[in-house]
Design a protein around this nucleic acid. Sequence first.
DNA 1: AGACGCTTGTGAACGTGTGCACAAAGTTGC
DNA 2: GCAACTTTGTGCACACGTTCACAAGCGTCT
Lengths: 224, 224
Amino acid sequence: MPEATVARLPLYLRALTTLAERGVATVSSEELAASAGVNSAKLRKDLSYLGSYGTRGVGYEVDFLRHQITREIGLTQDWAVVIVGIGNLGHALANYGGFASRGFRIAALVDADPSRVGEEVTGLKVRHADELEQIVQDLGIAIGVVATPARAAQLVCDRLVAAGVTSILNFAPAIVQVPEGVDLRKVDLSTELQILAYHEQRKNGAALALTAEQAAELAEAVNG
Amino acid sequence: MPEATVARLPLYLRALTTLAERGVATVSSEELAASAGVNSAKLRKDLSYLGSYGTRGVGYEVDFLRHQITREIGLTQDWAVVIVGIGNLGHALANYGGFASRGFRIAALVDADPSRVGEEVTGLKVRHADELEQIVQDLGIAIGVVATPARAAQLVCDRLVAAGVTSILNFAPAIVQVPEGVDLRKVDLSTELQILAYHEQRKNGAALALTAEQAAELAEAVNG
DNA sequence: AGACGCTTGTGAACGTGTGCACAAAGTTGC
DNA sequence: GCAACTTTGTGCACACGTTCACAAGCGTCT
């Protein structure tokens, strides 16, 4: 299955869940694509990788398709997750309800700061970073979330990997290296803003260019 | 400039900043690519869109290249940003130092909950959502960050756009539609985890397949 | 000055992703 | 049962992105 398709499945899942909550039983690729914000041909091609789950002339059964995507992503089982770094962002992640409702169970919270250890967040006590390896092994954790400062990120990732974690979601603004076989994704809050700033600047640039063009027209009008 | 290149410029910028802090004066494409975690040919092609800023046989001057990328992204000017929704995530975003140090100034915090209005976060008083349009216009805000619950996201985006915001970074787990000319990026915390889960599941699947293969070998050994 | 070594910048091949357009297949109405 | 209509699934062409491989250019050393 293409990586681009995998990245869109959660999007479809969310759209389907919204439809199911509204009591919609079946949906066409056109409708589903619209509510997911993608092209309908792309949606159909994506879904075709799962199998032929639609009915021609009718569309897709919402609940059935939702179940198939859930199964394909692997959300029928519970994934134990450890969050490392319980600062502002770590707190926000620990409190974020969207994880629990999608098959991700926050199994442990870890921080290196002794003054944070023992604090209770969402019913879980924050444990010290020294225990990281033990926690990962005892709880059979495969997925780690890193929300530490940038300087700690590489060390934390190394320790997570050594302890047996094979998927890491990195929120720290740092580039970390992981060995082959370990999946690493990163979410960078300021990178996204920078991309927006680039386009924003060009919008203003485009406005300026238009003004220059108007100036040229004006000059032509005067000269002609 | 290709969109993929734009998305990587912040990455290079970060790597260059790290190098500059270490006192490195010049860097080759090979070294810079390694610390940014990309292919060196890709890096060179990306940088070539900015101009010919390297010296053959030597490499790139770190400070100079950093300045060029900063200028290209548009980070030489300050961007005023409003954060809408001051829950756990909004707090984390408001406190995140990475914005301020990269040319983004958090100019206003807005929430719809009257009990949150007036609270002080990072030296800024939270203001009521009713004032949103006024705030955006008074402060000349072009970029909005949405950290509200999913159900409020579309309305908030509509109001931001109506007030003149032309770039939106959406953290709410909802699919929102914006008119042509408005840039929308979304960061979805649980989508990222779901993508990891998909690959994690396949790793286990691969492990199981290997076991099946071993079983076949074993059977062969017994039968042969 | 000229030869040598190193690194950039880029043409060209390749691979991945997207979107059109339509045949295949189902449903509905008569 | 058949015709008309709807919608899926997919072959195909095109666009985009990545990577290789190498010529062009710069610095250095003799």
